[in-house]
Design a protein around this nucleic acid. Structure first.
Lengths: 124, 124
DNA sequence: GTTTGACTTAGAGCGCACTCTAAGTTCTAG
DNA sequence: CTAGAACTTAGAGTGCGCTCTAAGTCAAAC
């Protein structure tokens, strides 16, 4: 249970987000609580903070809007009582992600067909 | 080989795009040629136009930027000589789509894990 | 023939998610 | 102790892809 107390630049490197984006997420209410400060100014991220950012990133990379992520964060902040709300939110999101995956897969199939036609033409 | 000569609103309905977006695409150089005009003002889309918009939509829905779609349209306009360029462009796009699909699928797996944990908690 | 609704244009506006700036403060290496 | 890099803030700016507006023209139904 090491608590690395990472600087923002370390978290940026670890998560692939920019320092700008990390501060933006915090302002947008995406963190569970304001990140600790070392000297009452510079941020120090705990391992839990970094893990949370990691999960946020998964929500974002599946297309969940910032506003919905913020809503989810708020539910987590409110504690155990909101478990079923969180479950529902994630399940709803899951459905949209599956639909999105199906759509992209279908479009990709059409593109693959076109590729096959071009390959046919080129092999001459 | 019916040639329906559709009005823009019909094409909007058929493709799921708005009339605004159809005009925007044309201005952005995404059509193979300016759409025909009935009375020298109102657009009349041919079946080929509609089919082309359909393929555009597949490119877009897999995340290809407008500018790249425009580039692809330009290659088609230049004719047979560009077949291998078009093939290459689509193949490159295909790689990025597959990467994107893999990324979303991985993130979804993490979300599914969370869902499972919440389901466990809720069933009490 | 007239009305009503669809169409036309150029260009402005919007929503999202960052991304950057400026001016100032703090940490760290030498 | 000092220099330079990294950090801080609030707020402005950017890029993308639409989306809408205003002012005017045209078409189809009655």
């Amino acid at each position: 249970m090491t608590d690395a107390r990472l600087a923002i630049s370390d978290v940026a490197e670890a998560t692939g987000l920019s320092t700008h984006t990390l501060r933006y997420y915090e302002r947008a209410g995406l963190m569970l609580a304001p990140v600790d400060r070392a000297t009452s100014t510079h941020r120090r991220y705990s391992d839990a903070d970094v893990a949370w950012v990691g999960f946020l990133t998964k929500l974002r990379s599946t297309g969940m809007p910032i506003a919905v992520v913020a809503e989810y964060a708020e539910l987590v902040r409110r504690g155990e009582a909101t478990t079923s709300d969180r479950l529902e939110l994630l399940q709803r999101h899951r459905i949209t992600v599956l639909a999105q995956l199906a759509d992209v897969t279908q479009s990709l199939a059409a593109i693959d067909k076109k590729i096959a036609i071009y390959q046919e033409k080129v092999s001459e």
